[in-house]
Amino acid sequence: MSIPPNSSGASRRKTTVLVVDDAIYSRVALRRILETESDFEVIAEAENGVEAVKKYKLYRPDVVLMDIVMPEQDGIEALRDIVSFDPSCRVIMCSAIGQEKMLTTAISLGAKDYILKPPVAEKIISSIRLVVSTGPQ
């Protein structure tokens, strides 16, 4: 996997995360949660699905935290595109939508987990650790 320029390589490699959400409030909240863990690094942010797919291809993050309701392309479509590009991707949906149909759609398309907003630090961190330790890539 290509390592971005700001990774040292000398120390233990960090888990890189792409944060995708159209709301800056959510992106700040998620970034703050992830910054509390020394082994996590927010490698990039995206504001919609189109940008998410582009940045996934560019940075190849270990994990994507993906919102669903976004302009241009929603999180479900972006998930579909990312899975099609990289079937071993690890995408965790992070949305305020709690409808069971949405959850099953996301999981059936290849999402590794589904977290409800507002994000709770412990849930986000444990979910990322779990998908990194068990999922392929």
Binding site: A23, Y25, M70, S95, I97, G98, Q99, K101, M102
Partner: peptide, 30 residues
């Protein structure tokens, strides 16, 4: 930023209840 996030949270959780009861998919726009 705060209003947009609150609106998204409110609309999503509000429509969840109507969706469950009506058995139809209702989602908010941004």
């Amino acid at each position: 930023a705060l209003m947009e996030e609150l609106g998204n949270l409110l609309a999503s959780t509000y429509l969840d209840v109507f969706s469950d009861v009506a058995g139809m998919r209702l989602l908010p726009t941004p």
